[in-house]
Design a protein around this nucleic acid. Structure first.
Lengths: 207, 207
DNA sequence: CTTTAATGTTGACATTGTTAACATTGTGCC
DNA sequence: GGCACAATGTTAACAATGTCAACATTAAAG
C-alpha cells in the first residue's frame, strides 16, 4: 500500500501520484489569489490536469474538498505562527515569554491582514476536519504561549483559566475585521494591532 | 414615483409590490434555516413566486443579492443590540453605563451564539453595501456606549481612543468562534462570554 | 391617450456538481 | 509469472444553476 516507489510518477502518467494533495494545494492557491466564491470543482480539476470526476475518488463532495482547503489554510496560519516564534527572542525570562506571546499573536493578526482570502476560508467551515497531527494548531500555540507565561509566574492561575478564550477571541476578532478592511488604513491597522495585543496582556494582569 | 397607493397589490399581481425587499427577506430566512451555501437565485425566486430573471431588475448579480442579505443580517444584529439596550437599566450613572455596555456587547455575542447562520453571512461579504441610514449600526452602537462611559468619566480619554477597536475585536472574535462551536459546551460558552466582556472593561481600566 | 420607463416573463445557453458505466494501473496472493 | 482485486482515472450524460436577449405587461408622465 502506497508503495509505487515514491514519486516515480509512472511513465504514462495515468495515475497522478498524489492527486489529493495536489487538489488541495491548487485550491489553496486559487483561494489566495481569486477568493473563495469562485472556487469550483471543474476548474480545479482542469488546473490539476485531471478529469472532473477524478476528484470524487478523493473527496466525497465539493464541500468536503473546500473543508480540506480550509484545513490547509489553518495550517498556513499555524506555520506563520511558528515562524514568528522562531524569529522571536528565546530567553526563558518574563520579557522573553511576553515577546513570544506578542510574536505569535501578531502572526495570527498578520494572517488576517496579509492573507485575507485565506482567512476568509480558514474559519468559515462548518464540519472542517482536524489538522494533521504534526501540524501546529493555532489555538494550541496560543495556549502554549499562555502556559509558558503561567509557568514563568507572570500569569496567575486564576487568569490562566480564562486567558485562552480572551487571547483567542481578541486576536481572532481583530484578524477577521482586518481581513475585511474594517480596521482602517494600513498604519491605523498596525497601530491597532499593537494596542490590541497589549490590551490582552493588560486584562490578564501581565506586566 | 413609488405611488401605486401603497400596498394595493394590484389585482392581477403581475407586479409584486416590493420584490426587492421580499427577495432579501426570503434570503435572510433561508440562510437562517439552511445556511449560506445553499442560497440560490432560482430557489429564491421560486419561493418569492416570481420568475428567476425578475431578480435582475433589482440586483445586478447573485453576489449583490447576497451582499444585500448580508446587510440585512447586520441590521438584525443592530436590532438585537438596541433591544438589549432597552432592557438594560437606564440610570445615568457609572454602574448604569457599564450595565449598558455589557448588554450591547452581550447582544453582539448572542448574535454569534443563537444566530450563527446569520453571523456566517453577516461579515463574510466583501463589497457589502452600507446599512440603511436609520438602521442601528453595530460598531457605532459599541462606540456610542464607550462614548457614554467616557463622558461619565470612568473611561479615560487615552483609553477611549483605543476602546472601539479593543471592544469590537473582542466581541466580534468571540461571536465568530461561538458561531462555529469553538467555544465548547453551552455553559462553557456562557461563562466565557461573561469573562470576555469583563476583560474588555478591565483592559480599559474600568471599575 | 399616447409615450415611456419600470417591472416581470419566456426561452435559450454555457457551466456546474454529480452519477453511472467503463478503462487502466498497481498490489498481493497462489 | 500470472491473476484476481482494489485503487484510481476516464467518458458520457443529467439535472440544476446563473445569466442573457427578446418580448409582454403594467404604472407614470406628458
Amino acid at each position: 500500500m502506497l508503495t509505487m516507489s515514491t514519486l516515480k510518477k509512472s511513465d504514462a502518467e495515468f495515475h497522478h501520484g498524489d492527486l489529493q494533495a495536489a487538489l488541495v494545494t491548487a485550491g489553496l492557491r486559487h483561494v489566495e489569489k481569486h477568493g473563495l466564491n469562485s472556487l469550483g470543482l471543474r476548474q480545479l480539476a482542469l488546473v490539476t490536469g485531471v478529469s472532473p470526476t477524478a476528484v470524487y475518488r478523493h473527496f466525497e463532495d465539493l464541500e468536503h474538498l473546500k473543508a480540506s482547503v480550509a484545513k490547509a489554510a489553518r495550517e498556513v496560519l499555524g506555520k506563520m505562527m511558528v515562524d514568528a516564534l522562531k524569529s522571536a527572542p528565546a530567553n526563558k525570562t518574563e520579557k522573553g515569554a511576553i515577546a513570544r506571546f506578542l510574536a505569535i499573536g501578531g502572526a495570527y493578526i498578520d494572517f488576517g491582514i496579509k492573507k485575507s482570502n485565506l482567512c476568509e476560508i480558514a474559519f468559515i467551515c462548518f464540519d472542517s476536519p482536524e489538522l494533521e497531527p504534526d501540524s501546529p494548531n493555532p489555538s494550541e500555540l496560543l495556549i502554549a504561549s499562555l502556559t509558558e507565561l503561567n509557568e514563568i509566574g507572570c500569569l496567575s492561575d486564576k487568569n490562566f483559566k480564562i486567558a485562552p478564550m480572551i487571547a483567542w477571541s481578541m486576536v481572532h476578532g481583530f484578524a477577521g475585521l482586518a481581513a475585511q478592511g474594517a480596521t482602517g488604513s494600513v498604519q491605523e491597522t498596525n497601530a491597532s494591532k499593537k494596542e490590541v495585543l497589549l490590551s490582552v496582556l493588560k486584562s490578564l494582569d501581565i506586566k
